[in-house]
């Protein structure tokens, strides 16, 4: 349904709140740091706005939105934004992901 986007969930029925929390992993902290740097919250760069981050998270399908963890959504959205902005290209990303998987995967 387009009328109500999946992320816009205020007031919908849902289960009990599970009081879950976890220590963030280093890769999650690095994703957070990338956002802080690219958006200029710290430092001079303005390569990304918080609303672009949100837009590209909202563009995830409902299933992916619910299945992915918070920073999985973030890294996907930041990467998508960097492609949209022309900071990186899809081809560069593809080649890099193949290289990194061979090296560290």
């Amino acid at each position: 349904m387009i009328e109500r986007s999946h992320h816009d969930m205020g007031g919908l029925p849902a289960g009990k709140v599970e009081r879950s929390e976890h220590d963030y992993a280093q890769w999650e902290r690095r994703v957070d740091a990338l956002m802080v740097l690219l958006s200029g919250i710290k430092g001079p760069k303005k390569l990304l706005t918080v609303d672009e981050l949100r837009k590209n998270i909202e563009a995830l399908g409902p299933e992916a939105y619910d299945k992915m963890s918070y920073y999985e959504r973030w890294v996907t959205s930041i990467t998508q934004s960097m492609i949209q902005r022309g900071v990186i290209s899809t081809e560069e990303l593809a080649r890099k992901m193949v290289e990194v998987e061979r090296r560290d995967g």
Partner: peptide, 18 residues
């Protein structure tokens, strides 16, 4: 997604963005 994080970061470092 970890692979994406490493790849994105390395590209941004190579380009001198961060």
């Amino acid at each position: 997604f970890q692979l994406m994080e490493v790849s994105l970061r390395e590209l941004l470092v190579e380009k001198g963005v961060v």
